[in-house]
Amino acid sequence: MGYNFFTSVLFLFFSFTSTTPKNAATPVVTTTNNALAETESVYNMIKAHSATMPGFACFTKAMNGFKHLKEQGKIKKDLLTVIDFSQSSNTKRLWIIDMATQTVLYNTLVAHGRNSGDEFATAFSNDNSSNQSSLGFYATGEIYNGKHGQSLRLDGLEKGINSNARSRGVVVHAADYVSESFIKMHHRLGRSQGCPALPGNLTKEVINLIKDRSCLFIYHPTEKYVKSSALAS
């Protein structure tokens, strides 16, 4: 009887140790595959409706963060603003996407900080007086009237990455150096003190659309950001 009991215990032990890791891994793999498939499906649907789109790597991170922030209640609207600072400042590298209807509402020029680079942005900071852009996810805030006219405050949602945005005065505002004519004259777009500045003719309608807790994401594939961001992964 003692032998049979011991044999039964061994059988149960080896059964659990041999099958549990395999069974435990399956939901993780399935969840990852499902999330990627969902992102690819949404991306292709938006692309079918739109003339241009951010790159898939950029959009994947943007959508990951958007979903997390929606679940956490940190953003309220179904609008996702994506800025891809891996692209030349001479290109239209800002997109405003209606995630409910899966369409691009705006695609336009946007400036980066003067100390982030010339035509291309390569350096980023969360520090005061750095005059550099900050990467990562933001929630849009309230509209106010400042030295650039009607402007939109931003709250950085990633500690150590863009969390000083409000105290730095990083806002969405209009700038005359964000234009095709400036590019023709200087061979690159003008630069800000770290703000995502927009063309003057679009700024009011854009900030009235995205104000009050919509998601704004500034992307660059710099390794430091990719490793530090919990929202983008």
Rank of each mutant, 00 (worst) to 15 (best):
E40I: 14
H68V: 15
F182P: 06
V206E: 04
S86C: 00
T32M: 12
S179V: 12
I161N: 03
F66M: 03
A174F: 07
Y225Q: 01
K77I: 00
L231S: 00
L80P: 06
R166S: 14
E142L: 13
V82G: 12
G160F: 09
R114I: 09
T17W: 00
N34S: 12
V170E: 07
V206C: 03
V172I: 15
M53C: 01
W95F: 14
A111V: 01
H49R: 13
R191Q: 13
S163D: 15
R213L: 10
I218D: 10
N107Y: 08
A139C: 10
G146W: 01
A175S: 13
G2N: 14
S151W: 06
S15T: 14
H148S: 14
F217G: 08
K147W: 04
R168D: 03
H187F: 12
G146F: 01
C195A: 03
Q132C: 09
V82T: 11
S233G: 12
I161W: 03
C195F: 02
T30F: 10
A175W: 10
C58H: 00
T26C: 00
A174V: 08
S179K: 13
L109A: 10
S151R: 01
V178G: 04
T203W: 11
G73D: 09
S133H: 11
F59W: 07
K74N: 05
I210P: 07
F66D: 00
T108I: 09
N115D: 12
R168T: 01
